[in-house]
Amino acid sequence: MAVSFQQIEEKLKTEARRLLESGEVSLVLAWGKGYDEKHPMPYVAKCPSDADGIVFNEYCTHNPARYLVRYPRGTKIAVAVKAADSRAVVQLIQEDKVKRRDLVILGIPVYGIKNPKTGELIDGKTTCGLYNPVLYDVLIGEEVHGQPVSSPYAVLAEYEAMDRDARFAFWKKELDRCIRCYACRKACPMCYCDPCFIDQRKPRWGEKSPEPAGNLMYHLTRFHHLAGRCIDCGECSRACPVDIPLYLFHKKVAKDCEEMFGQAAGMSIEDKPVLVNFRMEDSDKILE
């Protein structure tokens, strides 16, 4: 890679300091120092001196776009995003959760982010595999040329080919393990409902204890709520303390949506999310 993580970090710091000093933004969302090198944490810089706390290394997996919806509307925010993260920003703009004019997007084209848990490279297998941010104001570093190594949906082939009963057994085994810590929901940049359907008492949609029935209800509904909105950052699976491969189901739903409605989530701010849109000429075949 042409630009090192060190250079990106320096440039991020400079840019953050400039934005905060000029008063262009009131906060910068990025990554900061964690308890060790391998675990950088999401970080909010609120004044120019905070900018020195920004860190960027190969373990910066978190998606700072997650925190955009936590601030009152109209707050001027600069957000540092990697390629997949920028799709979250685009999707949030589509859903009118944030305004484009309130944002300064610091796009980081990057390849080589690693999962701190496994040390594996995060690529098209667990995420959308994009190298370059789809939307940015300031590009930190240089655009990475070349196509993603594999199609983001290639990993699904194995599961789609599975026998239906085997697939049910697979998901049952995975979802039964869920401890309902809701880390997937909290790590997800697109999960912002307040209250979440599972927290509602009336109607009570599903059991709240970490037991198979409630787990199935929670996860299936969550997959549905993210249909056509999931931007495939894979953060849910990385946040999961019991390693449920949630990204597989999200990828499958994203793939189906793309096939049926011809639009991937978070690629253009002109688009409308597929499930709040329709076309007269949608075919009834999709229901078969």
Partner: peptide
């Protein structure tokens, strides 16, 4: 027309979950 899209997704989800 909204329902058609939404229920199509529901169907796909049920199928991928193994129903």
């Amino acid at each position: 027309l909204y329902a058609r899209r939404r229920l199509a997704v529901t169907k796909k989800i049920l199928e991928f979950a193994g129903l």
